[in-house]
Amino acid sequence: MSKVEPLVIIGSGPAGYTAAIYAARAQLSPILLEGSVTAGGALMNTTEVENFPGFQKGIMGPALMEEMRAQAEKFGTRFITDDAVKVDLKGDVKTIQDGSGNTYQAKAVILATGSGYKKIGLPKEETLSGRGVSYCATCDGFFFKEQTIAVVGGGDSALEEATFLTRFASKVYLIHRRNELRASRIMQQRAQNDPKIEFVWNSQVIDILGEDKVSGVKIKDTVTGEEKSLSLTGLFVAIGHEPRSELLKGQINLDENGYVQTTPASTKTNIDGVFACGDLVDHVYRQAITAAGTGCQAALDAERFLALHGIFSA
C-alpha cells in the first residue's frame, strides 16, 4: 500500500488536466489517472476546435489536450496511464485501485471522468458496429469515400461530424428527431450551406438494414408516424453522451441520469474531500472551456479543503 497522497484526480480531458495544472502549481503534486484508452478525453476524437479562447486560428482537439497535459506535467503532476476500476471514497482517506491492481490513497479526490457516447439502443447497432455503424467520424470517415452515409443527432458534435464527413462521402444525411437543431448557429449555417448534406427532419432511426454490413436504415417520422427506408452504407451515431459514473454508483449522490450532484456554485459532492467537475457533472454547457473552468474550481476547492486539514503541499 502506498503513502497517503494529498490529491488524486481521476480522468483526463480539459477538466482533469486543468485541475492538475492548478493543483500542481499549488504544490500538491497530484496523481492523475488519465485512463488507459481514454486519455485526453472526448476531444481526442475531434478535429478543429475553433472556440477555445486564445487560439484564434483554431487548434486540433488532440493538440490542445497534449498542450494541457504537458502544462500539468511541467508543474509536477504524476500521470498514471490506467483506469480507476474501484474506489472507496468514504472516510478521511480515500482509496483508488487501478486496472493493474495498484492502489492509491488520498485525502482528497477530484472526479473528472467525463462522458461516453450514447448508443441508439437498436439490436443491429451492436452486430453492425465496425461494419458500417460508427461512433467516431475522424477515425472512420476514410472508409466511406464516394458513398452515401448518415449522421444521427442534432447537436454540435453531430453537425461537426456531418461537415467533416463531406470530405469523403458523396452524400451525408443528417437525421434528427426534431425539426430544429441544438447546435450553434455557425455549425448549423455551415451544414445548411453544404450541398452534400441533406437534412432529414422529425425522424427517428428505428432499424438498421443489412446482414453483414449496413445497407440502409429504416426511419419513422416522429410527427406523422410514417416509415421509410434510406439506402446508405455508413451510419454515424452522434446522439449525445452519458456520464461515466458507473464506478461511483452507491458511493456518491448522482442525479436520475447518472450525473454527479454538486453543491451549487462549487464542485463539492455530498462526500467530504470529494470534488467533481467537467462533463461528469455538467449536462447543460458541455464545452471544453466550461470543463476546464470547473476543473480549476475543483482544484481550488480541493486546495482549500486540504488547507483546512493542515495539508499545504505534498
Binding site: V37, A39, T81, T138, C139
Partner: peptide, 12 residues
C-alpha cells in the same frame, strides 16, 4: 491509421 485517436491509445 495515424489520424485515429483510439488507435494510438491501444498501440502501447
Amino acid at each position: 491509421a495515424e489520424w485515429c485517436g483510439p488507435c494510438k491509445m491501444i498501440a502501447p
